[in-house]
Design a protein around this nucleic acid. Structure first.
Lengths: 232, 232
DNA sequence: CGCTGTCTTGAGTCGGATCAAGATTAGTGG
DNA sequence: CCACTAATCTTGATCCGACTCAAGACAGCG
C-alpha cells in the first residue's frame, strides 16, 4: 500500500482506484512475468501472494522476494526485459495496467511517482536483509527471520489475524528456494521450530506462537521495514 | 555515473559539478556511514572504492555491495537512520552534500532525481543477482560472478585497463564476507581460479585472463547491468 | 628490524546436501 | 462419497562442500 509512504489526497486515491479498476482473478501457479520475455504492462497485486524468482540453467531456483497485496510487480524493470519471473503463490486478484498508461498517469500524479520510488527503497532494504540472512545465518535463523519479516509486512496491511496467524501460501520447496537450503533440511528445521513451540504451520497458514523468542532467535528487528511517510 | 541513465543537459552537468565541488580525501578503512547512526549528508564517491555492509552481534559481516566512482552513498536512506554501514576500501575522494541542499537541488533538477531513481533500480538488479549468487551457486561460481560483475561495472566508467586488469582493493576477508564463505575457503578457491588460468590477483589488482571462460563458469551475463537511458 | 595484517596450508569436523522410499494430503473425476 | 493420482511432506542413511582450528610464511610499513 502506497499510503505507507505518503499521505495521499482524495483525488490521488480515486485516480489510483480507477487505474486499478479492471482486475482479474488468476490461479495459483500462474506466471505473470517471464524472465527474459517482454512486458508492456505493470501488474498490481490486489489480493493474494506472489513470488519473484530467477532460474538457473541447471534448474535451481532462487526466490528473490514475496509480493503481498498492494505491491506492484514491475515498475522495476529498467528495460522492458524483466530479469526475473513473477508467479502467483495463491489464487490472486491482479490489475493489469499498460505501461504507457502508467507512465502518463505518473506524469499527472508526480507525488505517486515519488511514493513508488519510496516503495523501491523498501524493496532494497528487504533485499539487503535477505542477503545478510542467506550469507551469514544458519538454517534456523534464516527461516525464523523470514517468518518475522512476513508477519511484520502483512500486519501493516491488516492481514494478520488477532491470534497472530497469517497466510503463508508456500510449500517447503519454496522455503528452500528462498533461503538457499535444501527441501529436506527445511523440513527438519521446521520441525525444530515446531518442537520448540515457536511456530505452527498448517495448511499454508502460519502462526507465530512466541514472537518474542522467534525474533530473538532470528536476530530480527523491524526497523528496516519502517518507512516514514515524508514530504507530508 | 548518472549519464548512464539519462542524457543530461549542459546546465545539469554544471549544476552537479558545483554541487560536488567540495571533495575531501579519506584513507582506506574510513567509515563514512555508521549503521544505526544518523546522517544528514549524502556522499558522492568521486574516486576510489567503498563497500556497504551490515554487522551481526556475533561479529559476522555481510558485504552488501561495492561502490565505485560516480556512485552515491545514501539517497537510499528512507529515514535518516542508515540500516547499514559504508566504509572505504581504498583511499578515496568524497563529496559530502548536506541532505537539505540535495533535496532542494533535486527539486530544481527533477530529471536528475529521475536519473537517481534509475540508479536505485540498478542497485536492485545487482542485489537480486547477488542473492542468486549466494543462494544457489558454489564457491567457484560465486567468486567468478563477482569478478565478472566488477569488471563490467568498472569498464562502464573507464576504469579497466586495455590489458583487462582493474583495481579490486579487497582482501580475502572481504571476499569471504561478500560471498558468504570463509576466508580459508576463499583462499583455496582463488588458487583454483588461478591455477585454471582464469584470473590473476596481485597487489589488489585483478586481471581476468580468460573472460569468456570465466563468464561461462560463473553463469554470468551482463544483461542486468545494462541500463537503457530513456525519457531521452 | 620488528610489528601487524594478510595469505597459505594441513587436519579434522560439521551443517547441510543428496539419494531413496514411504506416508500424508489435496485434487480430480466418476 | 469414494477411488485414484499427483503433490507434498517425512524419515533414514550416506556423503561432501565448506567451516574451524592452528600454525607457519610473507609482505608492507613505521
Amino acid at each position: 500500500m502506497l499510503q505507507q509512504f505518503m499521505r495521499l489526497e482524495n483525488d490521488e486515491i480515486a485516480a489510483l482506484g480507477s487505474l486499478a479498476s479492471h482486475t482479474k482473478l488468476h490461479d495459483a501457479g500462474h506466471i505473470l512475468i517471464h524472465e527474459g520475455g517482454t512486458t508492456d504492462y505493470v501488474y498490481l497485486l490486489v489480493e493474494g501472494t506472489a513470488s519473484r524468482y530467477k532460474l538457473l540453467p541447471g534448474g535451481e531456483r532462487q526466490i528473490l522476494g514475496f509480493l503481498i497485496p498492494g505491491d506492484i510487480c514491475d515498475v522495476q524493470f529498467i528495460t522492458h526485459r524483466p530479469d526475473h519471473s513473477v508467479a502467483l503463490l495463491s489464487r490472486a486478484k491482479i490489475a493489469k495496467i499498460p505501461s504507457r498508461k502508467m507512465t502518463e498517469f505518473l506524469i499527472h500524479y508526480p507525488r505517486i511517482e515519488w511514493a513508488l520510488s519510496r516503495a523501491a527503497l523498501l524493496d532494497i532494504a528487504i533485499l539487503r536483509q535477505w542477503l545478510l540472512n542467506i550469507g551469514q545465518r544458519d538454517a534456523c535463523e534464516r527461516l525464523s527471520h523470514l517468518f518475522c519479516e512476513m508477519k511484520c509486512r502483512l500486519s501493516k496491511i491488516g492481514k494478520v489475524e488477532s491470534d497472530g496467524s497469517f497466510d503463508m501460501p508456500v510449500n517447503q520447496s519454496a522455503l528452500a528456494d528462498c533461503t538457499g537450503l535444501s527441501i529436506v533440511h527445511i523440513n527438519r528445521t521446521l520441525q525444530r521450530l515446531r518442537n520448540d513451540g515457536l511456530i505452527e504451520l498448517r495448511r499454508r497458514r502460519l502462526t507465530i506462537l512466541d514472537p518474542e523468542r522467534l525474533a530473538t532467535l532470528a536476530g530480527f528487528s523491524d526497523d528496516y521495514l519502517q518507512v516514514k511517510p515524508c514530504r507530508s
